[in-house]
Each structure stands twice: as structure tokens, then as C-alpha cells.
Design a protein around this nucleic acid. Structure first.
Lengths: 118, 118
DNA sequence: GCTATTGTGCAACAAAAGGTTGCGTTGGTG
DNA sequence: CACCAACGCAACCTTTTGTTGCACAATAGC
């Protein structure tokens, strides 16, 4: 697990600005670096760089339209990213659950010992 | 959403090395920078820095034990992080679902039009 | 058609994050 | 006591994230 490809997707959605860009693109549909930069607290150039990163991992696709460059979300790839989030979350959940159950068992044993003892 | 606190937790678990450290701590129980560094491809110092980051956001806690410094996962905080992963995943899922349904509707309309047309 | 505007791309630069090496210190152990 | 193992600190390098400045292309308006 946690292979190179996974890590790429993760670090792509790991950045807060990139997460917000994906949110905006999902909410409002395709947009340009300029239009997106009006809704995040960074410059157009910073947004453009993030879009390059997102494009590189396939989470968005560019399409020229006149002098503009519109970016849209690749739904299949985003679904894949979501699946990875879920996967990690579930792994941790399972381990947390196991720890919780183990703690309970130890507690029960301790109670039992205390009972036989007193 | 995506407030500052959320972003801190996110970027903490966004790093692949830190995710692996959390995995190891969950799997094997508390460990030191030195013990952990034997299971990840980075130096002890790099691990120590990551542990500082994880400590700062409350995902792990340090406890001195002789000359060693053991770090253990804070389960409540990790559960919170998992909840945030899930939350973002669900948000995107919903939006993807809405887009998918919209696309289906448009497709049906198109089919219907084609039917009345032909 | 010419000009002003607007959107892009590129380059140089700064600051922060992730990582390395080297060194000094300290706490257990033979 | 001498040694080894773990720690912290500091200097340094590279990549990422962000900035500013500038040059260029396409569009809109006169």
C-alpha cells in the first residue's frame, strides 16, 4: 500500500489550496486560473502552478478556449482519490477499533482479577 | 469549511512519511524516533521533525522514559482526522453524484428528443 | 484599423517544508 | 569508569509554495 501513485494523488489533494480549487471546480464547473484566483487568497500564478500539479496527476484537464485555458475536474480520477481517502480512513478506523476492543478486554480482565482477589 | 484547524490536521496526515509513521505507531504501539527511523526510508532526524509536527497538531504525544522519548498516537485526535477525511470524501462524492445524475438526466432528455424527432 | 484591456506564460526571487550530515551531550551498561 | 546508543541542535541542500515583474496574444471598443 501507499505506493508512489497513491502518494502522488494524496499530496495533490493534501494541499489546502488545491483542495479548495477542486471544491470550486466541482461546485461551479470548469474555470480558468484567473477566475479561480478571485476565490482563493493567492495570486493567479500560484493558482496556475497548482493547476499544473493537479493536471499532472490527472485530477483536472485543460482545454483551450480562445485566449482562455479552462480547467475541469476529471471525475473518474477524483473518485479514485476519494476511494484512497476512504481506504486510509478505514484502515485507521479498524486499528483504532482494535485498540479500543483490546483496552476493553484488558479492563474486563482487570475487573475479574479484582473480583477473584477481593 | 476547510478552516485553519482542519487544514492543519490535513497537512499533517497529507505527508506520506507522517502517514506511515502513524500507521507504524498504530500497528506496533508507541515508539521512538530511532525505532521508527528503522522502518521508514528517512533518517532519525527527519522522523524527529515529523514527530514534532504530529505532536503540534495533537496526533501523537511524547513521554520521556529514561533517555528515550516515546511517542504514542492520540486516538481521539486521529479519529477526528479520520472524520475529516471522511467528510471531504463525502462532500466530493455528493458533488460527483450530483454531476453524474445531471449527466444522466441530460442523456435521457437527449434520448427523448431523439425519439420524438425520429 | 489602432488602442486599451484582459488572460497567459515565463523568469527571478523569497520563504517554508522535508531531508541530510555533523557534532555535542547525556543516560544506561559491561 | 569507559563505552555505546539515543537524543537535541545547527548548518546546509532541494523542492514546494508563493510572490512580483514583464512580455505577449487575443478580445473589445472607438
Amino acid at each position: 500500500m501507499t505506493a508512489a501513485v497513491d502518494d502522488e494523488l494524496w499530496s495533490a489533494v493534501g494541499d489546502p489550496t488545491r483542495r479548495r480549487l477542486l471544491d470550486l471546480l466541482l461546485r461551479d464547473g470548469p474555470g480558468t486560473a484567473t477566475s479561480l484566483s478571485r476565490e482563493v487568497p493567492v495570486t493567479r500564478q500560484a493558482v496556475a502552478k497548482h493547476l499544473v500539479v493537479l493536471d499532472r496527476v490527472g485530477l483536472v484537464h485543460a482545454s483551450a478556449s480562445g485566449r482562455e485555458v479552462r480547467y475541469g475536474v476529471d471525475e473518474a480520477q477524483l473518485a479514485r482519490a476519494v476511494a484512497q481517502l476512504r481506504s486510509v480512513g478505514e484502515t485507521w478506523d479498524r486499528r483504532l477499533g482494535r485498540i479500543a476492543r483490546l483496552a476493553e478486554e484488558l479492563q474486563r480482565e482487570r475487573d475479574r482479577d479484582a473480583g477473584t482477589d477481593g
